[in-house]
Amino acid sequence: MVTDRLTDGVRIAQLLASEVTGSESRLRGLTVVDADPDVEATTGGALAYRIARETPEDGSDAGDADAPRETVAEVFVQPDRARIEAIAAPEAAATAATEAGLRVRPKAARPPRTLVFVEDGAQVKRALTVLEAIRGEPNAG
Rank of each mutant, 00 (worst) to 15 (best):
M1K: 13
M1L: 10
T3R: 11
T3K: 13
D4F: 14
D4M: 14
L6P: 00
D8K: 13
D8A: 05
D8Q: 08
G9M: 15
Q14E: 11
L15V: 11
A17C: 13
A17I: 09
A17H: 10
S18H: 07
E19N: 05
V20F: 03
T21S: 15
S23P: 08
R26H: 11
R26T: 01
R28V: 02
R28F: 12
G29I: 06
L30N: 00
D36F: 12
D36V: 02
P37C: 06
D38R: 12
E40T: 15
A41D: 12
A41H: 08
A46T: 02
A46I: 10
A48C: 04
A48T: 02
A48P: 04
Y49T: 11
A52D: 09
R53D: 01
R53V: 01
E54F: 07
T55Q: 14
E57G: 12
E57W: 13
D58P: 01
G59A: 07
G63P: 00
D64E: 13
A65S: 11
D66Y: 09
A67W: 03
A67R: 01
P68H: 04
P68L: 12
P68W: 12
P68A: 12
E70T: 11
E70M: 07
E70H: 01
T71K: 04
A73W: 00
R81C: 03
A82L: 10
R83I: 05
R83W: 15
I84Y: 01
I84D: 00
I87W: 00
A88K: 02
P90W: 10
P90K: 12
A93F: 12
T95C: 02
A97Y: 09
T98Q: 15
A100Y: 04
A100M: 06
A100I: 03
G101Q: 10
G101M: 13
G101L: 05
V104A: 15
R105D: 09
P106L: 11
P106D: 14
A108R: 05
A108F: 10
T114A: 09
F117V: 06
F117N: 03
G121H: 10
A122N: 07
Q123C: 06
V124W: 08
K125H: 07
R126W: 10
L128F: 01
L128G: 08
G136I: 08
E137C: 05
E137L: 05
E137S: 11
N139M: 14
A140S: 14
G141L: 11
